[in-house]
Design a protein around this nucleic acid. Structure first.
Lengths: 120, 120
DNA sequence: TGGGGTGTGTAGTAAAAGCTACACACTGAA
DNA sequence: TTCAGTGTGTAGCTTTTACTACACACCCCA
Protein backbone atom coordinates (compact mmCIF):
# COMPACT_ATOMS: atom_id res chain seq x y z
CA UNK A 1 0.00 0.00 0.00
CA UNK A 2 1.49 3.29 -1.09
CA UNK A 3 1.99 6.30 1.21
CA UNK A 4 -0.67 8.07 -0.83
CA UNK A 5 -3.20 5.36 -0.09
CA UNK A 6 -2.46 4.67 3.56
CA UNK A 7 -2.37 8.33 4.47
CA UNK A 8 -5.64 8.93 2.65
CA UNK A 9 -7.39 5.95 4.18
CA UNK A 10 -6.27 6.81 7.67
CA UNK A 11 -7.33 10.42 7.28
CA UNK A 12 -10.71 9.53 5.88
CA UNK A 13 -11.63 7.00 8.53
CA UNK A 14 -10.49 9.21 11.39
CA UNK A 15 -12.31 12.22 10.06
CA UNK A 16 -15.50 10.31 9.42
CA UNK A 17 -15.46 8.87 12.88
CA UNK A 18 -15.26 12.37 14.34
CA UNK A 19 -17.88 13.62 11.89
CA UNK A 20 -20.25 11.09 13.43
CA UNK A 21 -20.88 13.13 16.56
CA UNK A 22 -19.47 16.48 15.45
CA UNK A 23 -20.79 18.05 12.24
CA UNK A 24 -17.83 20.44 12.17
CA UNK A 25 -15.79 17.55 10.82
CA UNK A 26 -17.40 17.49 7.43
CA UNK A 27 -14.84 17.43 4.65
CA UNK A 28 -15.60 21.00 3.66
CA UNK A 29 -15.49 22.47 7.14
CA UNK A 30 -12.32 20.69 8.07
CA UNK A 31 -10.69 21.81 4.82
CA UNK A 32 -11.66 25.39 5.59
CA UNK A 33 -10.21 25.26 9.09
CA UNK A 34 -7.00 23.78 7.75
CA UNK A 35 -6.84 26.32 4.99
CA UNK A 36 -6.98 24.15 1.87
CA UNK A 37 -9.50 23.58 -0.91
CA UNK A 38 -12.16 20.97 -0.07
CA UNK A 39 -11.67 19.25 -3.42
CA UNK A 40 -7.97 18.90 -2.63
CA UNK A 41 -8.72 17.28 0.72
CA UNK A 42 -11.21 14.99 -0.99
CA UNK A 43 -8.62 13.82 -3.45
CA UNK A 44 -6.08 13.22 -0.72
CA UNK A 45 -8.54 11.14 1.30
CA UNK A 46 -9.27 8.92 -1.69
CA UNK A 47 -5.63 8.64 -2.70
CA UNK A 48 -6.09 10.60 -5.92
CA UNK A 49 -3.45 13.01 -4.69
CA UNK A 50 -0.34 12.34 -2.65
CA UNK A 51 -0.29 13.58 0.96
CA UNK A 52 0.07 17.36 1.37
CA UNK A 53 3.07 19.27 2.69
CA UNK A 54 4.43 19.12 6.21
CA UNK A 55 2.62 22.17 7.57
CA UNK A 56 -0.71 20.99 6.26
CA UNK A 57 -0.20 17.51 7.70
CA UNK A 58 0.61 19.08 11.05
CA UNK A 59 -2.66 21.02 11.01
CA UNK A 60 -4.62 17.94 10.04
CA UNK A 61 -3.05 15.89 12.83
CA UNK A 62 -3.82 18.61 15.36
CA UNK A 63 -7.43 18.85 14.21
CA UNK A 64 -7.89 15.10 14.45
CA UNK A 65 -6.01 14.80 17.72
CA UNK A 66 -3.53 12.41 16.17
CA UNK A 67 0.23 12.17 16.65
CA UNK A 68 2.06 14.50 14.26
CA UNK A 69 5.07 12.28 13.77
CA UNK A 70 2.89 9.27 13.10
CA UNK A 71 0.87 11.07 10.45
CA UNK A 72 3.99 12.47 8.84
CA UNK A 73 5.42 8.95 8.73
CA UNK A 74 2.25 7.71 7.10
CA UNK A 75 2.82 10.37 4.48
CA UNK A 76 6.38 9.15 3.97
CA UNK A 77 7.85 12.24 5.61
CA UNK A 78 9.85 13.18 8.68
CA UNK A 79 9.32 16.29 10.76
CA UNK A 80 11.78 19.03 9.88
CA UNK A 81 12.73 19.60 13.51
CA UNK A 82 13.97 16.02 13.67
CA UNK A 83 15.94 16.54 10.48
CA UNK A 84 17.51 19.55 12.11
CA UNK A 85 18.59 17.49 15.13
CA UNK A 86 20.31 15.03 12.82
CA UNK A 87 21.96 17.74 10.74
CA UNK A 88 23.43 19.35 13.83
CA UNK A 89 25.53 16.28 14.61
CA UNK A 90 25.26 13.92 11.66
CA UNK A 91 27.91 11.39 12.59
CA UNK A 92 26.89 10.61 16.18
CA UNK A 93 23.16 10.75 15.61
CA UNK A 94 23.33 8.64 12.43
CA UNK A 95 25.31 6.07 14.37
CA UNK A 96 22.67 5.97 17.09
CA UNK A 97 19.78 5.65 14.67
CA UNK A 98 21.40 2.76 12.85
CA UNK A 99 22.16 1.13 16.18
CA UNK A 100 18.56 1.20 17.39
CA UNK A 101 17.12 -0.05 14.11
CA UNK A 102 16.33 -3.49 15.49
CA UNK A 103 16.13 -2.67 19.17
CA UNK A 104 12.79 -3.28 20.92
CA UNK A 105 10.59 -0.19 21.25
CA UNK A 106 10.59 -0.57 25.01
CA UNK A 107 14.34 -0.27 25.12
CA UNK A 108 14.25 2.92 23.00
CA UNK A 109 11.66 4.54 25.22
CA UNK A 110 13.76 3.60 28.21
CA UNK A 111 16.77 5.34 26.69
CA UNK A 112 14.79 8.54 26.14
CA UNK A 113 13.79 8.52 29.78
CA UNK A 114 17.34 7.96 30.98
CA UNK A 115 18.71 10.81 28.90
CA UNK A 116 16.03 13.20 30.10
CA UNK A 117 16.61 12.20 33.70
CA UNK A 118 20.29 12.85 33.18
CA UNK A 119 21.51 9.43 34.23
CA UNK A 120 25.16 9.52 33.40
CA UNK B 1 26.38 30.82 5.58
CA UNK B 2 23.82 28.98 3.46
CA UNK B 3 23.88 25.26 2.79
CA UNK B 4 24.68 26.07 -0.81
CA UNK B 5 27.79 28.01 0.21
CA UNK B 6 29.15 25.75 2.94
CA UNK B 7 28.72 22.62 0.88
CA UNK B 8 30.40 24.27 -2.09
CA UNK B 9 33.30 25.62 -0.09
CA UNK B 10 33.91 22.35 1.67
CA UNK B 11 33.79 20.42 -1.59
CA UNK B 12 36.12 22.80 -3.37
CA UNK B 13 38.79 22.90 -0.67
CA UNK B 14 38.77 19.13 -0.20
CA UNK B 15 38.94 18.46 -3.90
CA UNK B 16 41.73 20.97 -4.46
CA UNK B 17 43.77 19.52 -1.65
CA UNK B 18 43.54 16.08 -3.25
CA UNK B 19 44.21 17.57 -6.67
CA UNK B 20 47.54 18.77 -5.29
CA UNK B 21 49.18 15.37 -5.43
CA UNK B 22 46.71 13.52 -7.64
CA UNK B 23 45.86 15.01 -11.05
CA UNK B 24 42.80 12.73 -11.29
CA UNK B 25 41.07 15.15 -8.95
CA UNK B 26 40.73 17.94 -11.46
CA UNK B 27 37.20 19.29 -11.56
CA UNK B 28 36.55 17.73 -14.95
CA UNK B 29 37.88 14.29 -14.14
CA UNK B 30 36.08 14.11 -10.85
CA UNK B 31 32.85 15.21 -12.49
CA UNK B 32 33.24 12.48 -15.08
CA UNK B 33 33.82 9.79 -12.47
CA UNK B 34 30.79 10.96 -10.52
CA UNK B 35 28.70 11.13 -13.66
CA UNK B 36 27.76 14.80 -13.82
CA UNK B 37 28.60 17.72 -16.08
CA UNK B 38 31.82 19.55 -15.15
CA UNK B 39 30.11 22.92 -15.43
CA UNK B 40 27.49 21.72 -12.94
CA UNK B 41 30.16 20.67 -10.45
CA UNK B 42 31.90 24.00 -10.95
CA UNK B 43 28.74 25.91 -10.13
CA UNK B 44 28.12 23.80 -7.05
CA UNK B 45 31.66 24.39 -5.78
CA UNK B 46 31.26 28.13 -6.12
CA UNK B 47 27.79 28.17 -4.63
CA UNK B 48 26.12 29.18 -7.89
CA UNK B 49 23.99 26.08 -7.63
CA UNK B 50 22.57 24.37 -4.56
CA UNK B 51 24.05 20.99 -3.55
CA UNK B 52 23.09 18.08 -5.81
CA UNK B 53 20.82 15.15 -5.01
CA UNK B 54 21.47 12.50 -2.39
CA UNK B 55 22.98 9.91 -4.73
CA UNK B 56 25.39 12.39 -6.23
CA UNK B 57 26.46 13.62 -2.80
CA UNK B 58 27.11 10.04 -1.78
CA UNK B 59 29.39 9.53 -4.77
CA UNK B 60 31.24 12.76 -4.09
CA UNK B 61 31.76 11.85 -0.45
CA UNK B 62 33.07 8.42 -1.42
CA UNK B 63 35.47 9.90 -3.96
CA UNK B 64 36.81 12.39 -1.44
CA UNK B 65 36.94 9.85 1.37
CA UNK B 66 34.62 11.97 3.49
CA UNK B 67 31.75 10.92 5.77
CA UNK B 68 28.51 10.58 3.81
CA UNK B 69 26.25 11.72 6.61
CA UNK B 70 28.41 14.74 7.28
CA UNK B 71 28.38 15.83 3.65
CA UNK B 72 24.64 15.29 3.39
CA UNK B 73 24.20 17.42 6.49
CA UNK B 74 26.30 20.18 4.95
CA UNK B 75 23.93 20.02 2.02
CA UNK B 76 20.97 20.36 4.39
CA UNK B 77 19.87 16.78 3.79
CA UNK B 78 19.50 13.56 5.73
CA UNK B 79 20.27 10.12 4.37
CA UNK B 80 17.16 8.31 3.20
CA UNK B 81 18.01 5.17 5.16
CA UNK B 82 17.86 7.20 8.36
CA UNK B 83 14.51 8.64 7.31
CA UNK B 84 13.31 5.09 6.84
CA UNK B 85 14.37 4.14 10.37
CA UNK B 86 12.34 7.03 11.75
CA UNK B 87 9.30 6.26 9.60
CA UNK B 88 9.25 2.68 10.83
CA UNK B 89 8.55 3.76 14.42
CA UNK B 90 7.86 7.49 14.38
CA UNK B 91 6.67 7.96 17.94
CA UNK B 92 9.47 6.23 19.85
CA UNK B 93 12.28 7.36 17.60
CA UNK B 94 11.06 10.97 17.50
CA UNK B 95 10.94 10.95 21.28
CA UNK B 96 14.51 9.70 21.46
CA UNK B 97 15.82 12.25 18.98
CA UNK B 98 14.21 15.14 20.85
CA UNK B 99 15.59 13.76 24.10
CA UNK B 100 19.20 13.68 22.88
CA UNK B 101 19.07 17.13 21.34
CA UNK B 102 21.19 18.70 24.08
CA UNK B 103 22.98 15.63 25.32
CA UNK B 104 26.77 15.57 24.98
CA UNK B 105 28.08 13.73 21.93
CA UNK B 106 30.02 11.40 24.19
CA UNK B 107 26.85 10.25 25.85
CA UNK B 108 25.17 9.57 22.49
CA UNK B 109 28.09 7.52 21.24
CA UNK B 110 27.99 5.62 24.49
CA UNK B 111 24.34 4.80 23.97
CA UNK B 112 25.00 3.44 20.49
CA UNK B 113 27.65 1.17 21.91
CA UNK B 114 25.38 -0.08 24.66
CA UNK B 115 22.58 -0.90 22.27
CA UNK B 116 24.89 -2.75 19.91
CA UNK B 117 26.41 -4.71 22.77
CA UNK B 118 22.94 -5.64 23.87
CA UNK B 119 23.23 -4.29 27.38
CA UNK B 120 19.71 -4.60 28.72
C1' DT C 1 51.10 26.80 -33.29
C1' DG C 2 48.20 23.63 -32.46
C1' DG C 3 46.06 20.31 -29.35
C1' DG C 4 45.05 18.49 -24.88
C1' DG C 5 43.84 19.99 -20.45
C1' DT C 6 41.94 23.45 -17.18
C1' DG C 7 37.70 25.93 -15.25
C1' DT C 8 33.41 28.68 -16.40
C1' DG C 9 29.15 31.25 -18.62
C1' DT C 10 24.68 30.92 -20.74
C1' DA C 11 20.67 28.76 -21.72
C1' DG C 12 17.93 25.64 -21.39
C1' DT C 13 14.94 21.05 -19.64
C1' DA C 14 11.94 17.37 -17.32
C1' DA C 15 9.64 15.98 -13.52
C1' DA C 16 7.85 16.38 -9.06
C1' DA C 17 5.61 18.91 -5.20
C1' DG C 18 1.87 21.28 -3.51
C1' DC C 19 -1.49 23.46 -4.45
C1' DT C 20 -6.08 26.72 -6.44
C1' DA C 21 -10.45 27.70 -8.89
C1' DC C 22 -14.75 26.52 -10.14
C1' DA C 23 -18.47 23.92 -11.76
C1' DC C 24 -21.25 19.83 -10.99
C1' DA C 25 -24.58 16.50 -8.72
C1' DC C 26 -26.76 14.88 -4.73
C1' DT C 27 -29.35 15.16 -0.10
C1' DG C 28 -32.16 16.61 3.64
C1' DA C 29 -34.61 19.94 6.10
C1' DA C 30 -37.67 24.56 6.07
C1' DT D 1 -39.32 23.75 -3.85
C1' DT D 2 -35.55 26.00 -2.76
C1' DC D 3 -31.47 26.26 -0.65
C1' DA D 4 -27.72 25.36 2.46
C1' DG D 5 -24.63 21.84 2.93
C1' DT D 6 -22.50 17.59 1.29
C1' DG D 7 -18.64 15.41 -1.59
C1' DT D 8 -16.34 15.25 -6.24
C1' DG D 9 -14.50 16.01 -11.30
C1' DT D 10 -11.70 18.72 -14.46
C1' DA D 11 -8.29 21.73 -15.49
C1' DG D 12 -5.19 24.32 -14.51
C1' DC D 13 -0.99 26.77 -11.79
C1' DT D 14 3.70 28.14 -9.49
C1' DT D 15 7.88 26.77 -7.49
C1' DT D 16 11.50 23.74 -6.56
C1' DT D 17 14.68 20.05 -7.65
C1' DA D 18 18.21 18.26 -10.20
C1' DC D 19 20.15 18.37 -13.75
C1' DT D 20 22.17 18.58 -19.40
C1' DA D 21 24.35 20.65 -23.55
C1' DC D 22 27.60 23.33 -25.49
C1' DA D 23 30.46 27.05 -26.34
C1' DC D 24 34.12 30.01 -24.54
C1' DA D 25 38.73 31.49 -22.80
C1' DC D 26 42.85 30.41 -20.84
C1' DC D 27 47.31 27.79 -20.15
C1' DC D 28 51.17 24.90 -21.12
C1' DC D 29 54.39 22.22 -23.51
C1' DA D 30 56.10 19.62 -27.56
Amino acid sequence: MSATDSFGNFLRTRRQRKAGDDPSFSLRKLANRIGIEPSYLSKIERGHQPPPGEDTIRKIADELGEDRDAMLALAGKVSSDLLEIIRQRPAVVAELLRAIRRAPARRITEMSREVRDGEW
